[in-house]
Design a protein around this nucleic acid. Structure first.
Lengths: 241, 241
DNA sequence: CGTCAGTTTGACCTAGTTCAAGGCCAGTGG
DNA sequence: CCACTGGCCTTGAACTAGGTCAAACTGACG
């Protein structure tokens, strides 16, 4: 596999999970002019009210999307892993309504909207797959809403961990029941609408119940069935094929 | 305006707010074979885990989308008004991951996926506008997540009312600062992650503060600026043109 | 006039917040 | 090689926003 192909590979793998790419589609993706840029952790890639002229394809690392409310309050909406295009929406929505940032050092490629539009105009199945991807994004938001509105802290955290494990697994980023999840308890709180203190105490309960181990960014799910049960996790909403 | 045209008109108006429809596009929409069906209140139109073969265009009335969790818990994600296609996502996602129901008696048209696909294949600008619409849907979800996670009951309700007023206005369904909003306090609670009791008490405070009047489904915003302030409402996320 | 769905009230309770102080590395610089 | 720093995690104690339960009220409608 060429160096360049390895960059775009996570995205190709994602599309191939939906349908078999034709040689032409494969070539179109493989010949996207990608310039990988490394960005260190805790940097914003796009900001609320920006008017982006390009999309960012995540090649490696971890991104997150969030909005700042008044008084230092923050809501995190999603975390993104290799192969994701977290600001694909900017193709159709002029103005950013939230921020996108790196959680840890990450490698991304910026693709101009013009290039993206040419790609999807010439390859309708790729376009449909990307549309589909934005719809799954929305499905994940709905599930988080259900958690924020109606699940207690214990179930909410358990559900979050189930989701991330399944999404990592779907793109080959899990190792047994372990994944790399280098997010702080503060970020977890801002994602789940809870205070850091309560996140901390609830994680201790999850550990004491033997469901997980989580140390320095290494999450180990020690009782997958137990965690799913605690979360009442049903993966339909992830629309895996 | 013919009887049939009046049915599809809300959708046409929504598309025209984004770009000027060409005569061909206009004709394609106007000649969609629509059969209006009236459905009484509190009925499900689509259910979790269904595999729909058609989309539903709301012609008149009020729909909502929701998910049931265990123990009688429910999370409502959205309310939909005339011109919306709440299950457009079923074009690309086989399986429903939530329910769609009527709030009050409503008139809807079911359009087979095949017809929809022909329409958008032949009219790329309509396709893009519909894609865009699903992205705005997601933007609204994000804003609700921010409310569920990080706003208190007072601000959350105020924000909800601001959003609905602006969305009604955008399609000509407001009358001064009044809109028809026939939703129960129970549904409001399930949308905002609050108990009915607390919704009731907080609505009383909003009324006492002179921000709204809300009686038998008629919402009257008596202090629009005050309500926006209470909500820290910024309509960027609705992506109105 | 009775019923039923929806709203309102009161009293009590608890999940989660807030504030403030320690503890534990991993990295840095001397 | 050790001391120092700065993130991050952990703990305790006091507090509160919002939940729960149960009962009463209101108005629309048959």
């Amino acid at each position: 596999m060429s160096l360049h192909l390895s960059l775009i590979y996570p995205l190709i793998r994602k599309l191939e999970s939906i349908f078999n790419l034709s040689p032409e589609e494969y070539d179109a993706l493989a010949s996207l002019p990608l310039v990988a840029r490394t960005i260190r952790g805790d940097q914003d890639i796009a900001r609320d009210h920006d008017r982006p002229s390009q999309c960012c394809i995540l090649l490696d690392g971890l991104l997150y999307r969030y909005k700042l409310l008044g008084e230092g309050k923050r809501q995190i909406f999603s975390f993104h892993i290799a192969g994701d295009i977290p600001d694909l929406q900017s193709l159709h929505l002029q103005v950013m309504d939230h921020n996108i940032g790196t959680v840890v050092q990450s490698s991304v490629a910026f693709v101009p909207h013009g290039t993206m539009n040419r790609l999807i105009d010439e390859h309708p199945r790729i376009r449909n797959a990307l549309w589909r991807d934005t719809l799954i994004d929305a499905a994940i938001f709905r599930e988080w809403m259900a958690g924020l509105g109606r699940r207690d802290a214990y179930g909410r955290i358990a559900h979050f961990l189930c989701e991330l494990f399944v999404r990592y697994s779907a793109v080959g980023l899990s190792n047994g029941h372990k994944i790399e999840l280098p997010i702080t308890q503060e970020k977890l709180g801002d994602a789940l609408g809870l205070s850091t203190v309560h996140i901390n105490r609830t994680l201790q309960t999850l550990r004491a119940d033997g469901l997980i181990r989580w140390d320095r960014g290494h999450l180990n799910i020690t009782d997958w069935n137990g965690l799913k049960r605690a979360a009442t996790f049903d993966d339909t909403y992830l629309h895996l094929i």
